[in-house]
């Protein structure tokens, strides 16, 4: 890995000037700088401890915003952030990661290293206001202002009331950015923050856009296998284990299991911890 990073004056980046005295003097970056990236940027943020629901919502949201031609900004840590970057890349979008540590800090995990490389390769950027800085609790909170300033819209997938995500939201509100939040179960700790934002009128409630999905689906040319429709219908509204599906359909597990393998191979369903769900980012 070459230890050379580009740098740019903070004020020159679209949106950052709004920070006034808190605007970073200089930004370090990896990748090829392109001002176009910041013309229509949206930040998707959320908690590290992501639920299954949060993951699905995040994937949907990232896919849709990418389809709308937005650059997706997020923070590269595990949980929602990494899901955002991945989904964006998967749908051929460009994404910007704003690090909560110095650029070039070399104690990253394998996942992070891989993700950084793939962001760069796909025309995105990895940005930090420090070089070689060790991450600390405050660095993440401090970094949040850059994310908020860079994006013209901020989308919150999942967040507890007291969380780093909410710091970004506060900055966004201060800077007059548009805030969107995904409602979640009122019983879930990591949806308390998003629900509160909506109920207090600080954020608009985000819903999947059917129109965008349809055009995306044509692009991806997804085809449904008609022979397995009963499995498909059963999985429409819930995630189920093989046992549950077999019971529901009144078929032996060996048969249902085989069909699920085929559906997995064709990319229509996915399995996580023994539970199957439809891959329906597009619906």
């Amino acid at each position: 890995m070459a230890n050379q990073f580009g740098s740019i004056e903070g004020k020159k980046v679209k949106g950052l000037a709004d920070l006034g005295s808190r605007c970073p003097k200089k930004l370090w970056f990896r990748g090829n700088w392109d001002d176009k990236l910041f013309e229509n940027a949206a930040a998707i943020i959320g908690s590290r401890r992501m639920t299954d629901y949060g993951r699905k919502v995040t994937e949907k949201m990232a896919a849709q915003l990418t389809a709308e031609g937005k650059t997706i900004v997020s923070g590269l840590v595990y949980g929602v952030d990494q899901t955002v970057h991945r989904a964006c890349l998967e749908f051929g979008g460009r994404t910007v990661a704003v690090l909560g540590w110095g650029i070039g800090w070399d104690k990253l995990g394998d996942e992070e290293k891989k993700l950084i490389e793939s962001i760069e390769k796909n025309g995105g950027l990895v940005i930090s206001e420090w070089e070689g800085m060790r991450p600390a609790l405050w660095t993440f909170a401090y970094r949040d202002r850059i994310m908020a300033a860079m994006a013209s819209e901020i989308y919150v997938a999942e967040a507890a009331v007291k969380s780093g995500t909410m710091i970004t939201v506060e900055w966004g509100l201060k800077l007059g950015r548009e805030i969107w939040a995904v409602p979640g179960p009122v019983t879930s700790k990591v949806s308390e923050g998003t629900n509160k934002l909506i109920s207090e009128g600080k954020a608009r409630m985000w819903m999947p856009n059917q129109q965008a999905s349809l055009s995306l689906r044509d692009k991806n040319n997804t085809q449904r296998d008609r022979s397995n429709t009963d499995i498909y219908i059963s999985l429409q509204n819930e995630t189920l284990t093989v046992d549950e599906l077999a019971r529901k359909l009144g078929k032996p597990v060996e048969e249902v299991g085989g069909q699920l393998s085929l559906l997995e191979l064709s990319g229509e369903v996915e399995e996580r911890e023994g539970k199957y769900s439809i891959i329906n980012i597009l619906e």
Partner: peptide
């Protein structure tokens, strides 16, 4: 093989086979 948690109410339900 994955052995997921089973909801108890589903346990009592009639098994397919």
């Amino acid at each position: 093989v994955k052995v997921p948690a089973v909801e108890t109410n589903k346990l009592t339900a009639e098994s397919s086979s």
